[in-house]
Design a protein around this nucleic acid. Structure first.
Lengths: 118, 118
DNA sequence: CAGGATCCAAAAGGATACTG
DNA sequence: CAGTATCCTTTTGGATCCTG
């Protein structure tokens, strides 16, 4: 397997645990969220994993981070970049595909999923 | 994180190592391939992982398996189901997305990737 | 507030050998 | 041929505590 292949790498990173959840959390706010907000919203995630994933997403360019140093302590704001926002379409397609074919009897439906709301 | 959510589950399983490679191997042949053929074609994969992934994909309905018992030893043929074939579109979209935004300086390009040929 | 450090448990994957 | 079984290494994630 060639780790340099675009789609393998893409699938590898979106398949990572919590990554999609974080993207969707940022999408749902469709604005900007702080670290602690995200942590509170995404139930079950630990600080370590959240910061780790955010760093990965930032590196990949999906997430933008803004730091406000004028406050004490400093405030960090996260939001989807254009790249990240553009990825939402693919997530929607994945959902449509899964629902169309009824993959692995899922509970959420196109119109109302308590998590993704797509 | 709700493990019942459609898109999390979908991302989880396509993000698994080798899964995408196997789907693409079956797509490229766009016909039917035998276990040993797949193993030979996908360099680096072990018997264990290949059979494990094939089983998962079969369970999810992406892959169909046909067994010919009239031969000795028996012959097994794998191919993409309609569901699996329909998923190729999403893979293509993922690739387009990654290339459009130039994610993580990859080496393959839209027109010629030695692996995926999409 | 926004993490980093450390330690530990669990899971996934690889190597190798074997079989109906 | 088409896998299983076993063992072992590596990776990943979680819990907990700590800090500028």
């Amino acid at each position: 397997m060639d780790d340099d292949c675009t789609i393998y790498k893409t699938a590898d990173f979106i398949g990572k645990r919590w990554t999609l959840v974080i993207i969707l959390a940022l999408y749902k706010g469709n604005g900007t969220k702080r670290y602690t907000e995200l942590k509170r919203e995404i139930s079950g995630i630990t600080s370590k994993i959240l910061s780790l994933r955010l760093k990965e997403l930032e590196k990949q360019g999906l997430v933008k981070k803004r730091i406000d140093t004028s406050t004490v302590p400093i405030s960090c704001y996260y939001s989807l970049s254009k790249i990240g926002a553009d990825f939402i379409g693919i997530i929607k397609d994945m959902k449509s595909w899964a629902l169309k074919w009824n993959i692995d009897n899922r509970v959420c439906s196109m119109s109302n999923c308590k998590n993704c709301k797509l």
